[in-house]
Amino acid sequence: MIDVQGLTKEYGRLRAVDNLSFRVEPGQVLGFLGPNGAGKTTTMRIVAGFLPATSGRVLVCGHDIETQSVAAKRRIGYLPEGAPSYPEMTPRSFLEFIAEARGIPAAKRRQRLDEVFALLHLERVLEQSIDTLSKGYRRRVGLAQAILHDPEVLLLDEPTDGLDPNQKHEVRELIGRMARDKIIVISTHLLEEVDAVCNRAIIIAHGKILADDTPRGLETRSRFHNAVSVKLATPEHLAAARRAINALSEVASTELDEKTQRLTAFPAPGKLPLAAINALAEKERWHLAELHLESGRMDEVFRSITGGAMA
């Protein structure tokens, strides 16, 4: 378990992290979301034991990261922002160093290294120096370093930054596979990532927690949640259709996207307008090109939650 209690970090007069408290249990994949400069990386660095906190404390599996740092760090696998490593080394020698520094017994080292090489598809580049590798490979070397000792806690700071869509998918699969019995904290500003791998999301801005929910739960906060978008095959009927939809008791308001000619109907509080709109369309014999139930838009929630804080 990670237990963060009243964590505050000040740089001079700037308060980067402001009295942050949360707990993460095994099996949780926590997405740490926030605009750039929100304090995500600072928080990760404190939890990983790189930076000392100004006040508050962090317990990792019961060990205080400051007073019992070695015991706590043993349980953590950490991918720092930008996946730094030693550019002149090869992935093999770099990971051998990590294995040795992490105290993986020499007898098991060989086997564990081979497992991790295979897991992250590093076999092809093992003898090449890291500075000649592509960004994607470098990131994977960083991930390999983090999971090498099979830690109970994984802290990944922007694990898919700079990867192409295939690589992103692969890394997310990997995280998904490891998720069952581990505690995983991912900091990211990619909302799709939270959707894809996390079962809990914390949104922070200015070092404060603004929302702590499941990705689903966050989506229900969106005004798009349960909204219905409609596109007519016959655009000349659009104005009439809009009036009719607006008149429905289930609909609070409608919005028209001029570019796509897509009409979005927002639900009245507690109502589900989909059935009513569908019935209306049948009755009026509209030719629908699209009828679509919105589940809620994460980016919109994110903007509305952090928007006030950014001003």
């Binding site: 930008g82 730094p84 490593s85």
Partner: peptide, 11 residues
């Protein structure tokens, strides 16, 4: 290079 962060978070 930032590798200090890696080094200092090893046990």
């Amino acid at each position: 290079s930032g590798s200090i962060e890696l080094l200092m978070t090893l046990p």
